[in-house]
């Protein structure tokens, strides 16, 4: 497996947050890490990208890669327009001409060309998050990490942006890691769902091979029940 975490252990003083967490991340799939709020999902992400040290375990494949991020907040720069916000993360990766082509290409792909010169303050919360997702896909990386990106959105925006994410994912393959506590988000987006327990966090169940397109309404309901049971018990 190209990307993997093995037996990750993390303790804050006497509080054990992660207890031998092992997850394999298949290339070009969306892997959802699902767990209750405050169980240490963000801690695990920080260990994966190297911004936090682990006490024990192995992180494989992430160190050498450029990684795209989508955060809970859009983290757009207020004094830059959409084009320059996307261009900001690309600046050191490609020269101006290539950069402009890449930005135009992505804006065209998702029909957002008309917003190219809009400033963040002129956009709605949902639209801002779309730009942040677009920025993540335009960035030349093989991995995309999304840390509860739909948390602050209303139901309608959430649905639109999830569709938007899937569309971009189809157009531009990346290994996506989505951290969430929302079962519906995991079901809608995940090719694989990893369910975590309460602290000290362990992997409770891994649900694999669930191609979204083949999923019927009935199997979706069953899957939802299964996940709910895992999270409750």
């Amino acid at each position: 497996m190209k990307y993997e975490v093995k037996n990750i252990v993390k303790q804050y003083g006497k509080l054990q947050v992660l207890d031998k967490v092992s997850i394999q991340f298949e290339e070009n799939k969306i892997i959802c890490i699902l767990g209750p709020s405050g169980c240490g999902k963000t801690t695990l992400l920080n260990i994966m990208v190297g911004t936090l040290s682990k006490d024990y375990g192995e992180v494989i494949g992430f160190e050498k890669e450029d990684i795209s991020f989508v955060f809970q907040e859009d983290r757009l720069i207020e004094w830059k327009n959409v084009k320059d916000n996307v261009g900001f993360v690309l600046r050191d990766k490609m020269d101006k001409k290539v950069r402009e082509n890449v930005i135009d290409k992505y804006l065209r792909l998702v029909n957002l060309e008309e917003y190219k010169y809009y400033y963040p303050r002129q956009l709605s919360g949902g639209m801002r998050q779309r730009i942040s997702i677009l920025r993540a896909f335009a960035y030349p990386s093989k991995i995309l990490i999304m840390d509860e990106p739909f948390k602050s959105l209303d139901i309608n925006s959430k649905r639109t942006i999830m569709e938007f994410t899937l569309k971009l994912k189809e157009l531009r393959g990346k290994t996506c890691i989505l951290v969430t506590h929302d079962i519906q988000e995991a079901l809608t987006l995940g090719d694989k769902i990893v369910i975590l327990t309460e602290k000290p966090t362990k992997v409770k169940k891994v649900i694999e091979n669930i191609p979204i397109s083949d999923r019927s309404k009935e199997s979706n309901t069953k899957l939802k029940e299964l996940i709910e049971n895992q999270l409750i018990i």
Binding site: I67, E73, R75, F88, V89, D92, Y139
Partner: peptide, 18 residues
């Protein structure tokens, strides 16, 4: 300056000059 923006820039490996 919003530290979250600085954080984002660091994760995207944006250079210090930029």
């Amino acid at each position: 300056i919003d530290y979250k923006i600085i954080d984002m820039a660091k994760l995207y490996k944006v250079s210090k000059t930029t």
